[in-house]
């Protein structure tokens, strides 16, 4: 089996054979964390992932063709639309048009314009299940994605072709310096997402989500597109290398063991306070009840 196209690899996110590719291209020396991940991954999953990667590669070949071949100026005409874009348009008109309007221009009070958000935003919003929205709330909750990876590709192709904007990155998204990533994470991200990405509360019912379930590409596209209240981190502010460092840090720390025992959510003093009362004091109270009893 051949190594899949790096582009397709990035597209399908966490469940692609990235581990395998990293294994072949960047042996363990550079990144012990990567090696650990590889070891943990079972052969079966790897095989499934390879198939998925191949399929994604096929899909993307079409997408790329359509995205690169036609000129952006005539984006709104249907004459040059590729099959993926057409499928994307169909999906868009079925699920998104109510809020985001015809031709991505947005509907006041319902949904913003999607012109200029790019495929990065589409990937993040749809792959994390935030879009389509079930109802208007303080913040779109993440939930299992409604669209398949193939459908997401089609939607991205449609939005990218018709509105333009930030595109998906390619290559190894964890190809960065671990320590630098940590420093950048604490400077730029931890204030909302907590020390190690456990998430945190924002004003009036909004929240910075936990990064526990986020895959590399979701984190990358989130930084790139600044979904909802998250600030945008453009490529001139955090370079792609820095973004990769941050992702490397987040995913490494997320995956590493807690050498001191149960992590209790890695939440710090609030959880520890709960433990000392509910476990420590309770156990000792039980102990002294027992000691005080006659039998």
């Amino acid at each position: 089996m051949s190594t899949p196209d790096p582009q397709s690899d990035a597209l399908t996110g966490e469940d692609t054979p990235r581990g395998l590719r990293r294994w072949s291209r960047r042996p363990t020396a550079g990144s012990p964390a990567a090696a650990a991940r590889v070891r943990r991954r079972s052969k079966q999953r790897r095989r499934v992932a390879n198939v998925a990667g191949l399929m994604a590669a096929l899909v993307l070949t079409g997408t790329l063709y359509s995205a690169l071949a036609p000129s952006q100026a005539t984006a709104q005409t249907n004459t040059t639309e590729s099959s993926a874009e057409a499928a994307g348009r169909e999906l868009y008109e079925r699920s998104c048009i109510t809020c985001h309007g015809e031709n991505l221009e947005g509907v006041p009070t319902r949904g913003p314009s999607l012109i200029g958000v790019g495929e990065a935003a589409v990937y993040f919003q749809v792959h994390t299940g935030r879009m389509p929205l079930v109802r208007q709330e303080a913040q779109a909750p993440d939930k299992p994605a409604i669209f398949s990876d193939e459908e997401i590709d089609q939607l991205m192709a449609y939005v990218q072709a018709n509105g333009g904007g930030p595109t998906l990155p390619s290559g190894d998204l964890r190809d960065g310096d671990l320590a630098e990533g940590g420093e950048l994470f604490r400077l730029n991200c931890a204030s909302c997402h907590n020390f190690v990405g456990e998430g945190g509360a924002l004003s009036s019912g909004k929240r910075a989500p936990s990064l526990d379930d986020a895959n590399d590409l979701e984190i990358y596209t989130a930084m790139l597109s600044g979904p909802e209240n998250m600030p945008v981190f453009g490529d001139n502010q955090l370079t792609p290398e820095e973004k990769r460092s941050i992702i490397n840090y987040v995913q490494t720390v997320k995956g590493q063991a807690d050498p001191g025992g149960a992590g209790v959510g890695r939440l710090g003093p609030a959880a520890e306070g709960l433990v000392i009362w509910v476990v420590g004091v309770a156990a000792l109270m039980f102990g002294i009840f027992w000691m005080g009893s006659k039998a």
């Binding site: 204030s191 909302c192 945190g200 004003s203 910075a208 600044g226 209240n229 998250m230 945008v232």
Partner: peptide, 21 residues
């Protein structure tokens, strides 16, 4: 505390220590 929980849609900056906005 360093503020900087910046909510770009609501234009609010939140302080994580005591939730001043």
């Amino acid at each position: 505390c360093p503020v900087s929980l910046y909510e770009q849609e609501t234009s609010r900056i939140l302080c994580p220590c005591h939730q001043s906005q």
